[in-house]
Nucleic acid binder design. Structure first.
Lengths: 129, 129
DNA sequence: GATAAGGCCTCCAGTAACTGGAAGGTCAAG
DNA sequence: CTTGACCTTCCAGTTACTGGAGGCCTTATC
């Protein structure tokens, strides 16, 4: 398979796949013409990466998860720790965003949104203190 | 005021304040020795920016909001549009994160997290299809 | 007057994870 | 033999800072 094929089949852009090779997540073979030649195993890894990224894992998390995936002697505790830490970060992020959402919702609701200059949003942002 | 004073009073790091000047959000005066000299008005702008950033507005949003803030003839509709668009992005982000949270919570709960290699998390990431 | 501490300056590299584009080689079809 | 679709590498740009090097300025102390 060429890069276009694995891009189609993994759902990842070709440039992203090149990037993953550059940072050492995958190591596809090369044809005589210099084209990357992807085996089924490479595609499988890319699909793994695509799913892990879709769950919001960082690239370094993905690197660790991939290593564990390929290690038959891994302890599931190691995997779970990565996932739990990531879950905590997501929960923290959600809490931050919800606080913003609450404030913004109030402000947007309070703003007339017409041609007049008076605006509770700006008043809040510019308040003293 | 020197930069250290406004940093303390606005809660923004000095480097961030320098950055805001570099991208044209503020334009403090300069003393003969080259030090930035901040007026109360500069501090007020920085506090405005700090609050807008804390609500998650992008720098470009902040630039637009600041311009509206200083324009007596603004229409509150323009402010509201920026805030509403931002709110929508936040809501979308929350939805994404909650989807991740749901999946991750399931996977983490299903994983024994012990010394054995068997792991539902990796099984999910590596599934075919 | 020398010195040391602390604040300020500019410039630059690095962060995360790509994305898009330029310049150019390769391949299959007509 | 040319056209067009792929592929290659390399590089700049994205967001919003952060940290550090190297060096000047100020103030206090000895």
């Amino acid at each position: 398979m060429n890069i276009g094929d694995v891009a189609d089949r993994s759902g990842l852009p070709a440039n992203t796949i090149r990037y993953y090779e550059e940072i050492g997540l995958i190591s596809p073979a090369r044809d005589n013409n210099g084209y990357r030649r992807f085996a089924e195993q490479d595609l499988h890894k890319l699909a793994f990466l695509a799913r892990a990224r879709a769950l919001g894992f960082t690239i370094e998390d993905c690197r660790a998860l991939l290593a564990l995936y390929e290690d038959d002697t891994r302890a599931s505790a190691d995997v779970k720790r990565i996932a739990r830490d990531h879950l905590r970060r997501i929960e923290a992020k959600i809490a931050d965003l919800r606080a913003m959402q609450d404030t913004l919702t109030e402000l947007v609701d309070a703003c007339a949104g017409d041609a007049r200059p008076d605006c509770p949003i700006l008043r809040d942002l510019g308040r003293e203190g």
